[in-house]
């Protein structure tokens, strides 16, 4: 009898324990991924789009606006348009888009390939917020320098302080369409001075992320083909740093952490 009682108790010891929650995932890539995601929009979405406007303006200027209709249909959203004025190209976003602001590329009358120096910014008929300055690279066709450092409206992230791109591009004709292939190498840094307030939980922190390309960003049209970033995160409150890398190969992102 005692044997059975004892065995029953031992059996229940196994049944009484159970797993209440799965816990977290041991993710080695979480830190580099978080840091990279902070800058990815600036480097792989926002700035390349601004660079496209510069390239379109150069192509239009070069073709004497012959390609205006074609490029408008290809690159502007529905109801969007491109207006050509003297030394100015206005890119009107969709009438029904989220933002009513427009992009203005102000030229100096010279092509970038001739050493021209342009400005790109926001504004309806003139630049109200300067986004970047563009300078032709040594007078070489298909190359220019794109430098931010001007004011970016607060609704855009990140709060870019200084970012310099070296851009090489090529306009590729495919049947009746044109595709912009570009390669962008850059370096710069961004300072975040964020006060995050979410409902009842408040947290604030200052941090800085410096980054540059170790492999230039290569894009074919809208498709990201490859890149390699080297990023250094510094927590300005306690001095913690993280040195990480992010690389895109064959559609997959790989991360690396560097420990000194």
């Amino acid at each position: 009898m005692k044997k059975y009682i004892f065995a029953a108790v031992i059996a229940l010891l196994g049944f009484s324990s159970c797993r209440l929650s799965d816990g977290g995932i041991r993710d080695y890539n979480k830190v580099p991924r978080m840091i990279f995601n902070k800058v990815q929009y600036a480097t792989c979405n926002y700035v390349p789009k601004q660079i496209d406007y510069v390239i379109l303006a150069e192509v239009l200027m070069q073709s004497d606006n012959v390609l205006l209709g074609t490029l408008t249909a290809q690159y502007m959203e529905t109801y969007g348009s491109i207006t050509v004025e003297e030394n100015k190209y206005l890119f009107h976003k969709s009438q029904y888009g989220e933002s009513n602001s427009e992009i203005c590329v102000q030229t100096d009358g010279k092509l970038l390939s001739e050493g021209g120096e342009w400005i790109i910014g926001r504004g309806e008929d003139k630049i109200v917020f300067e986004i970047a300055r563009i300078k032709g690279k040594d007078g070489t066709p298909g190359r220019f320098e794109f430098s931010t450092g001007g004011d970016i409206p607060e609704d855009m992230t990140p709060n870019t302080e200084a970012l310099r791109y070296d851009v090489e591009y090529e306009l590729v004709k495919e049947a009746s369409n044109y595709r912009i292939d570009k390669q962008m190498a850059f370096e710069g840094w961004v300072l975040y001075n964020s006060t995050d307030e979410y409902n009842y939980l408040k947290g604030k922190g200052q941090y800085k992320i410096e980054w540059h390309t170790v492999k230039p960003i290569v894009m074919k049209g809208e498709d990201l083909c490859s890149y390699g970033f080297d990023l250094l995160y510094t927590n300005l409150d306690d001095g913690t740093t993280h040195h990480v890398g992010a690389f895109l190969y064959n559609g997959e992102i790989f991360y690396e952490r560097y420990f000194e």
Partner: peptide, 23 residues
């Protein structure tokens, strides 16, 4: 989502094990 980036990054190098009820 409600924590700041600095705080989230500090916790990003940690993970929690499953919670077990021991009886």
């Amino acid at each position: 989502a409600a924590t700041s980036f600095n705080t989230s990054l500090k916790n990003a190098d940690t993970y929690s094990t499953p919670r077990w009820f021991v009886g």
